[in-house]
Structures are given as C-alpha cells and as structure tokens.
C-alpha cells in the first residue's frame, strides 16, 4: 500500500471513504441552489395545503384533531425523503455517468450506501426543521407534542425509507435507467396501505391484514393514538422495528444480488455509456 493512503481495511480508511460520498453530495448541494429549493418546495406546499384543509374542516365543525393531520404530513415527509434522497444520490451518479468511476474505487457497496444515508439524514434534518417551524408558526402545531415517541416513530420511518431506496436502486441496477420511475414512486405504494392520513380500520379487511406487515402503519396509528391522549404503544412500535429489520434484510439481499447480477451480465459497464 502506498504511504499516502490509510490501510484499506482500517477504520480510518472506511470512514474516509464514507466521508468521500458525503463530501461529494454536500458539495453538489452547495453548488446547486435548485436542489436546496427542491428539498423544501414540495414539503412546504404539502404542509400548506393540508394545513388549510385541516383549518377548513375545523371551521365546519368536522370532528377532527388538527395535530393528527399535520403530524401525518410531517412524519410522511420523513419516510418520503428518506427513500427519495438516497435513491436520488445514486441516480445522480447514474445521470453523470460517474457510477463506473465509483465502482473502480475501493469503496464497498456498504460504504457507498452508508454515505448516501448519512447525507440523506442531513437533508431530512434540514427540511424537517423548516417544516416543523412552519407548522408551528402557521397552525400552532408543535411536532414535539408527540413527545418521546417521536424518536422511535421517526427511526422506524427512516429505516423503512432507506430500505425502499435500496429496492429502488436494485431495480435501476437490474432494469437500467428506465426503472428510475420506481425511485420516485415506490414509497407511494405504501401511502394508502399504511394509513398515513386515516385510520387503518377504514380499509377493507384484506388491506388491513396487509397494513399490519408495513412498519409505517404502526407509526401512523401510534402517532394518532398518542395525539389522542393514549400512551405510546411500545408493543406495536417493537413490532414495527422488527418489521424494519426484515425489510432492511430483504433490501440488502436484493441490492447485493442485483449488483452481482449487474456485474455478471455486464450491466454495470453500460452505466458508463
């Protein structure tokens, strides 16, 4: 090994490589104000629309708790952004034909994904800070009224979002750039099933069964319970975390298998064309 580099399997080298991914994405964000605008634009629009819908329903004496809808909007953004930011980080490399450059470095797939995840956390934290402030200023809703349960709620959604991102990345690796639509839309498959804006009990029975297998369902049900005055449902939260482990396990397996397949079929090379 040359003296200018850390030993490739050392902790220093691993962190340096992960930092390389984060550094690259941070620099890209700094150089592209449109990306910052994009991070904030849709969440803010969604917050404003749903916020005023809530106010309208309240004004018309519809029995509705304002915080439930706004809480759902904010937590949904956590899931949505966790999924999309990681997928977009990968797609940026596809779009700039930089994927081959990355795959000939000593960066492991795990380090690359870790870098994308860390960067997504930075973006989510920034976006959420703005939305939370707006929700408080415009509607008097403080996200922290959810209490200590907010931490596991958000953790479950983040992990689910990252697992979905890995599935989307796998789809692009397997089917090519044309499959990038999956990166935008996969998370929305879970929106109706997970009961983001309504209780799962309104769904048909089959979908209710399906909903129990989605970690996000337990978060949104739990959030409504907490905002309705019930204690934090730790048992269902534990179930959600267990489901997250399964989702992440499957997503990692899929990512690893599609990467092997892409190398075997020469698909990885085609990302440089």
């Amino acid at each position: 090994m040359t003296a200018i580099a850390f030993e490739p399997h050392s902790v220093n080298a691993r962190w340096r490589r992960i930092a390389g991914v984060v550094y690259r994405d941070l620099a890209a964000m700094r150089r592209s104000p449109i990306r910052v605008f994009e991070i904030l634009f849709w969440p803010v629009i969604e917050l404003v629309v749903w916020g005023y819908v809530t106010l309208f329903l309240q004004a018309n004496k519809v029995p509705f708790i304002v915080s439930m809808l706004l809480g759902a909007v904010l937590l949904w953004q956590v899931l949505h952004r966790a999924s999309n930011e990681v997928s977009i980080g990968f797609l940026e490399d596809v779009w700039s034909r930089n994927l081959i450059n990355l795959h000939v470095t000593p960066v492991t797939p795990g380090e690359y994904v870790t870098g994308l995840i860390l960067f997504s956390l930075i973006k989510i934290a920034g976006g959420l800070a703005v939305m939370t402030t707006l929700a408080y200023v415009l509607y008097g809703f403080g996200l922290f009224t959810i209490g200590i349960g907010l931490i596991p709620f958000m953790a479950v959604l983040l992990v689910l979002g990252w697992a979905l991102a890995l599935v989307a990345i796998s789809a692009v690796l397997r089917f090519g750039e044309g499959a990038q639509v999956i990166a935008w839309s996969l998370v929305f498959v879970f929106q109706p099933i997970a009961g983001v804006f309504y209780p799962v009990s309104v769904l048909p029975e089959v979908l209710q069964w399906l909903a129990t297998a989605v970690p996000a369902t337990h978060v949104f049900e739990g959030m409504r319970a907490v905002l309705g005055g019930a204690p934090i449902p730790w048992d269902t939260l534990a179930l959600a975390m267990g489901l997250d482990v399964v989702y992440v396990g499957v997503a990692l397996w899929l990512y690893s298998a599609t990467l092997r397949h892409a190398r075997s079929k020469g698909r990885l090379s085609r990302f440089g064309e």
């Binding site: 200018i4 580099a5 850390f6 490739p8 050392s10 220093n12 080298a13 691993r14 340096r16 490589r17 930092a19 390389g20 991914v21 550094y23 690259r24 620099a27 890209a28 150089r31 592209s32 940026e92 490399d93 700039s96 034909r97 930089n98 081959i100 450059n101 990355l102 470095t105 000593p106 960066v107 440089g272």
Partner: peptide, 22 residues
C-alpha cells in the same frame, strides 16, 4: 466516463481522494 457536472474540479478530486482513503 463522466464526472459530477455541478462540482468544481477541485471538489471532484477531493471527493475521489477520500474515496481512495488518502
């Protein structure tokens, strides 16, 4: 091969230098 187009050359090289664990 391409490189991230929005980045300055220095930033691209700094990023790859980290990816090689320098």
């Amino acid at each position: 091969l391409g490189l991230p187009g929005v980045l300055h050359v220095r930033e691209v090289l700094n990023s790859f230098a980290r990816l090689y664990g320098l």
